[in-house]
Design a protein around this nucleic acid. Structure first.
Lengths: 246, 246
DNA sequence: ACCTGAACACCGTTCAAGT
DNA sequence: ACCTGAACACCGTTCAAGT
C-alpha cells in the first residue's frame, strides 16, 4: 500500500504532452546528451515491469544508465513525468500487438480488445497502479482511444452512447486489473492465504461468505473477467437496439 | 501519481485482522495509554478525507494527537496497518447508512447498493486509491461482503455465479471510482482542462475522439455510472435466466 | 554548454534515554 | 511499564562546482 502522492499529477493539465509528437533532444546534432530520452523511458519501464513502481527511484534509474540523478532532471521535469511516459510506452505495446478486428462485429471487437488489454495488464501487473493514478493522454493513449471510439461509431452507436460505452468498458477492465495488482503481488501464495482466511471465518457470522469461499478465491480470475465482459456486451446489445428503435 | 509501495501490503496474509473483533488496549484498566486505538484511526481518516493520503504522515498524525511518532508504533505495526484500519472504518460508514432493501428485487438491490457505494466513494474520493491497493478484509469489509453474497444467493443465483457477480460489480464500481479519484483531485478545473485538451486535438489524426470530445469530458459522471450499472444488471438478468433454464 | 556529486528536505521506522 | 525526542535510512529534487 502506502500511496504517496506528494507531487500530485494533474491529469487535466497534461503539461508534458503536446498535440503534436514532441521533438525531444534525442540526437540534435552538437552537444548530444549522453543518455537519450528513449533510453531513460525504456530503462524505467524495465525496472517497473520487473520489480514494481516502488523499485523505481531516481538513484536506481540513474545508476542503471551510468549517470547521476541530476542528469535525469535535464530530460524530465519530475519522476511523475517519467512515469507518465512509462505508461504511454506500455500502451504502445498494445498498439504493436493489435489484432485484425475487421472480420468481427462490434461485440467480438469489444470482447477481443478488452481481453487483450486485460491480458497485457496481467503480463505487466506493476503498470496497473500507474494507470489508475492518471488519465493517460500520451500519444499512444490517444491513438488507442481513437481506435475504440471509431469502432463504436462505425458499429452504429450514437456519439453520446459511444462515449459511455468506452468509459464503462475502460473502467471495468481497469477495476478488474486493479484488484489483480492488489492481490497479485505474490499471487500464487496470496490466493492460498486469502482462501484459508475465508475458510476460517465463523460460518455463523458469515454463512454466505463461507459458502462461497472456494469460488471467491479459487475461481480463475480470467474466467471472471470474461463473465463480466459478456454481461456488459449483452447489456450493450440491448441498449443499442433500444437506441436504434428510438 | 507517485505510487510508493515500499512496505508492500500483503492482502493474502491479513496479519492484522482476526476473525473475531480484536480486543485492543482501548481502556484496559491500569496503565491505559494516553491515546486510544479508535482515536488514532478516526484522526487518520479525518486527515485522509480532508487532505488525501499524501497528507497523512506519521509526524502529522502524531502531532494532531499531541503525541510523538514512536507512540503510534506502540499501537500499530506500520503506517500500512493504520491505512488498512482507515479503509475498514470508511467501509463502516456504508454499513451505518445502509438502506432498507427488503422491498426491492435483486436488480433494484444491486443497483441501489452499487450506487450507494459509488456515492460514498465520491464523497470521500481520497479513500479510493487506498481501496484499490488492498483487498479489504477488516470486520466491516466482511460484513458488507456477506450482505451482498447472501442477497445474491437469496435471489436465486447459484453460488459460483454469485461470486462472479459480486466480483464483477465490485470491480466495476472500483474501476469507476478509480478514474474519479485520478481525474477528481481538482475536478471542476480538471474536466475543463481535459475538455480543452481533447478539443485542441488535430481532427485529421483523431476524428472520432474530437467528435466525441464534449461527451468524453462533459457528460455527468454519475450518469455514466448508472448507464454501466444498468448494462451489467441487464446482462445479469439474461445470465440468471439461462442458469435457471439449465 | 552540458554534466553531476553532494546537499537539502521529507518521511517511515527504530532506539535508547527519560519518566 | 509506558512514552518519546532524536537519530537512521531512504528518496525526490536542487544547486553549485566541475568539465
Amino acid at each position: 500500500m502506502n500511496i504517496d502522492t506528494r507531487n500530485t499529477f494533474q491529469p487535466g493539465s497534461p503539461q508534458w504532452w503536446s498535440t503534436q509528437p514532441r521533438e525531444r533532444n534525442s540526437s540534435s546534432g552538437r552537444g548530444r546528451p549522453s543518455i537519450s530520452f528513449e533510453k531513460i523511458i525504456a530503462t524505467a519501464l524495465e525496472i517497473v515491469n520487473s520489480a514494481g513502481p516502488q523499485a523505481l527511484n531516481m538513484r536506481v534509474l540513474a545508476d542503471r544508465l551510468n549517470s547521476g540523478t541530476a542528469t535525469l532532471y535535464r530530460h524530465f521535469e519530475s519522476k511523475d513525468e517519467i512515469l507518465a511516459y512509462v505508461v504511454d510506452r506500455f500502451l504502445g505495446l498494445l498498439l504493436e500487438h493489435k489484432r485484425d478486428l475487421s472480420n468481427l462485429d462490434w461485440r467480438g471487437a469489444c470482447f477481443v480488445t478488452a481481453t487483450d488489454f486485460y491480458h497485457q495488464l496481467s503480463a505487466c501487473p506493476h503498470i496497473i497502479p500507474l494507470l489508475s493514478s492518471q488519465i493517460p493522454v500520451g500519444p499512444n493513449a490517444l491513438t488507442l482511444r481513437e481506435a475504440w471510439l471509431s469502432m463504436l461509431l462505425d458499429a452504429g452507436f450514437p456519439p453520446s452512447m459511444a462515449a459511455s460505452v468506452y468509459t464503462t468498458i475502460a473502467h471495468y477492465v481497469l477495476g478488474f486489473a486493479s484488484q489483480l495488482s492488489a492481490g497479485g503481488r505474490i499471487s500464487q501464495d496470496t490466493s492460498h492465504h486469502l482462501s484459508q482466511f475465508f475458510d476460517r471465518l465463523d460460518p455463523a457470522l458469515y454463512p454466505s461468505t463461507v459458502k462461497i469461499a472456494p469460488q471467491l478465491s479459487n475461481i480463475s480470475i480470467d474466467d471472471e473477467f470474461s463473465f463480466g465482459m459478456k454481461l456488459i456486451i449483452h447489456g450493450l446489445d440491448y441498449e443499442l437496439n433500444q437506441a436504434k428503435l428510438a
